[in-house]
Amino acid sequence: MSRISEEQVRHVAHLARLAVTDEEVEKFTAQLDSIIQFAEQLNELDTTGVKPTSHVLDMKNVLREDQSKPGLPREEVLKNAPDHEDGQIRVPAIIE
């Protein structure tokens, strides 16, 4: 049985903000299915009570002084923006 359907692949692509063609949906469905099948070997292991590791070093809450510092100059920030006008980044209309 397939572990992931074309419909799920379309849903995941939407969540990931990726436009996909029908051919890509078909290809990703097959490829993700085999990768997920491969990943399911982890179910052979009993991990009841095992703490998850998100980070290998024993450190948490790295804090610094809350000091104000100058931000980046506007022209630097806009230098790589694909579209800008009057010192602001321009995007398509958000509100209809």
């Binding site: 997920i36 990943a39 982890l42 179910n43 292991l45 991990t47 095992v50 703490k51 998850p52 590791t53 998100s54 290998v56």
Partner: peptide
């Protein structure tokens, strides 16, 4: 998937 993999990471470590 994600949490399971994090737990196995603990075992590998």
């Amino acid at each position: 998937y994600y949490k399971k993999a994090q737990q196995v990471r603990t075992l590998i470590k």
